[in-house]
């Protein structure tokens, strides 16, 4: 099953390597990862999306908790949360199909952020599913380049 693990860590060098090594020693590939500072400059939040066996992930979570530079670990897979990914999609476009593409982007509430003679760059935020969906719809036009961030997530309410 796919898990989203949210980790609060000290904002200093070497921390990411320590965390990544706990996954890699089990042969787990991290599907997506995003790191950024929080409201406290000395603390960063790492959001990790990883596929794995329930019990093994519980082990990894416990071991993450043991790292001195890790302050808090929460598996928020089953929590009600707001998830966002950001993607930039460069797609082939000419005079004939440009408006068709722009219509698709509109439906998805994306933004066209660059227009060139033969291409468009589209900025898209949203859940993973939403980004995958627009990716599928744009593929027939010819995707030149695709850049995606890792997922960031926030649990709803006061928690």
């Amino acid at each position: 099953m796919r898990h989203t693990v949210s980790v609060l860590v000290a904002n200093k060098s070497g921390v990411l390597a320590r965390i990544a090594s706990l996954f890699s020693r089990r042969g787990y590939n991290i599907d997506s990862l995003s790191v950024g500072t929080t409201e406290d400059q000395e603390v960063s939040r790492i959001t990790i999306v990883v596929e794995g066996d329930e019990q093994v992930l519980e082990q990894v979570t416990k071991q993450l908790n043991k790292l001195i530079d890790v302050y808090k670990v929460s598996d928020i897979t089953n929590d009600s949360s707001i998830d966002r990914n950001l993607a930039l999609i460069k797609v082939q476009a000419n005079l004939d199909n440009r408006s068709e593409i722009m219509q698709i982007v509109d439906v998805f509430r994306g933004k066209v952020v660059d227009v060139a003679a033969n291409s468009l760059v589209i900025e898209m935020t949203g859940s993973e599913e939403k980004i995958e969906a627009i990716e599928e719809l744009l593929r027939p036009f010819g995707i030149i380049e695709l850049v995606k961030t890792g997922k960031i997530a926030m649990v709803r309410g006061e928690k």
Partner: peptide, 14 residues
């Protein structure tokens, strides 16, 4: 050496 010893120390410092 801090990179090398991440998985075999309780903690390390550079």
């Amino acid at each position: 050496i801090t990179g090398i010893t991440v998985p075999i120390t309780k903690h390390n410092y550079l």
